[in-house]
Computed example of a mutant assay.
Amino acid sequence: MVDQPELRAWHPPLVGIEEVFHARITDHVYPMHTHETWTLLIVDDGMVRYNLGRHEHGALDQIVTLLPPHVPHNGRSVTPGGFQKRVMYLDSTQLGDDLIGLAVDCPVLQDPLLRQRIHQLHVALERRGDELEVESRLALMSERLRDHLRQRVQDRSAVREPGIAHRLRELLDAKFVEGISLQQASAALHVHPAHLVRVFSREFGMGVHQYVTSRRVDLARKLLLSGMSPRQVAVAAGFYDQSHFHRHFKRVLGTSPGRYAGSAPAVQGAAHLL
């Protein structure tokens, strides 16, 4: 029997962080999926193996993992007891899309001070009453992340022009809730549907339908944490019905929409800025 992950997820009342997600994962294997936000991950116990940008990487204790938006990745435990992780999903006010290319090749950051700042921010986010502390910690952390990425600029070649796969992704991003057929995309881009499927899969490491589903699940997470009911979210995020929504949400996250929505912790107390 597959174990249900232990998790807490919530949307903090703070510009810059879309979602906070704490979980212990044992048996669940994350399929290829994407986010429209930056995924900032620290592992407190165990080890994670994942693919990003057609390369395999590992995440373990004492290092920081930064996964850029729109780039497919998966994840699985490589330790018998699973892994425990804390994740923040950062929006473009903290890290702009112009930094995505700099993060793809090397998502691992070995920086003890950065990891400590991330830990302190997670602790502060679970306490209510000192928003200035949280904002201060976020500012320090984001600044250090940007510094890491910009140090790589000199090692990068010129950014290449977006090809057919990137144009298709832009079209999917604009239509992922209402949906767009391959025939419609083919007509819009003047490219045969089969060729669209091939180039998209080769460029991003996942199928067109997988990408659209992952965007819908990503939206559903936000709507659930905002208080919308799973039934309403299924429609708002573009799923055919609630059963369709439940099946794909659980496949990606390993838990049901209802359990995810009810996982937000009760926040209390206040922390002191160190």
Rank of each mutant, 00 (worst) to 15 (best):
R215C: 10
R215D: 03
R216W: 07
R216G: 03
R216K: 13
V217E: 03
D218A: 15
D218I: 08
D218C: 13
D218M: 15
L219R: 15
R221A: 03
R221I: 05
K222E: 06
K222M: 08
L223D: 02
L223S: 04
L225V: 03
L225G: 05
L225N: 01
S226G: 06
S226V: 10
S226P: 00
G227Q: 02
S229L: 08
S229M: 03
S229V: 02
P230A: 02
P230T: 00
R231N: 09
R231D: 13
Q232P: 05
Q232I: 10
A234V: 07
A234E: 11
A234P: 01
A236P: 05
A236N: 11
A237R: 06
A237E: 04
A237S: 09
G238M: 10
G238V: 09
F239S: 12
F239Q: 09
D241Y: 11
Q242A: 13
Q242Y: 15
Q242K: 11
Q242V: 12
S243K: 12
S243A: 12
S243V: 09
H244W: 08
H244R: 08
F245A: 07
F245R: 13
F245S: 04
H246F: 13
H246Q: 14
H246C: 09
R247L: 12
R247T: 14
R247A: 15
H248M: 06
H248A: 06
H248R: 10
H248T: 01
H248W: 11
F249G: 00
R251A: 15
R251V: 12
R251E: 11
V252A: 09
V252W: 02
V252S: 06
L253K: 08
L253I: 12
L253F: 10
